[in-house]
């Protein structure tokens, strides 16, 4: 019933889901903020893999979305479409890679600033220090 392509498709989806689960677990459960930022980048990278995988085609002569013939006619275009992968998911991904970098820069700067203020990057310790400060003011 299941062909070999379907088996690989299922296995790859499961691994991607497992990677996402691990990244979300690290993002929620690990206390260090730098670990959280690294897990966030892993989560974003896994979503890029998901996007690229959605656009992939499980057939053998498969080519990227770049036309090498610069003066095409209808026949060459039809042949190109029969082999090429979907160009829309990588388009969404490229801007996401660059914006993700700028967001990560912002997060790292905020983390360094947080360390200067609290002297630690452990979220539990930061919560305790904040609680003590609030108790001291009362």
């Amino acid at each position: 019933m299941m062909g070999i392509g379907e088996v690989f498709w299922l296995y790859i989806w499961l691994i991607i889901m497992a990677n996402m689960g691990l990244a979300i677990y690290g993002l929620i459960m690990r206390p260090n903020i730098l670990k959280k930022i690294a897990c966030l980048t892993v989560l974003a990278d896994t979503s890029f893999i998901v996007l690229a995988f959605i656009g992939y085609r499980f057939k053998y002569p498969v080519s990227p979305y770049i036309m090498t013939n610069w003066a095409p006619n209808n026949a060459t275009i039809t042949h190109f479409i029969s082999e090429s992968v979907d160009p829309l998911p990588p388009t969404l991904t490229i801007t996401a890679v660059v914006i993700n970098l700028s967001i990560t820069i912002l997060l790292v700067f905020l983390a360094i600033r947080l360390y200067e203020v609290y002297g630690t990057l452990d979220v539990k310790k930061i919560a305790m220090i904040k609680k003590e400060l609030r108790g001291g003011e009362k």
């Binding site: 299922l10 479409i81 090429s84 979907d86 829309l88």
Partner: peptide, 20 residues
């Protein structure tokens, strides 16, 4: 599962991008 065909939107983009 294991798609072989392109989505219609991607196919249109590929058809029109350098079509004289």
């Amino acid at each position: 599962p294991a798609p072989v065909k392109l989505r219609l939107l991607g196919e249109k983009y590929l058809y029109y991008m350098i079509n004289p």
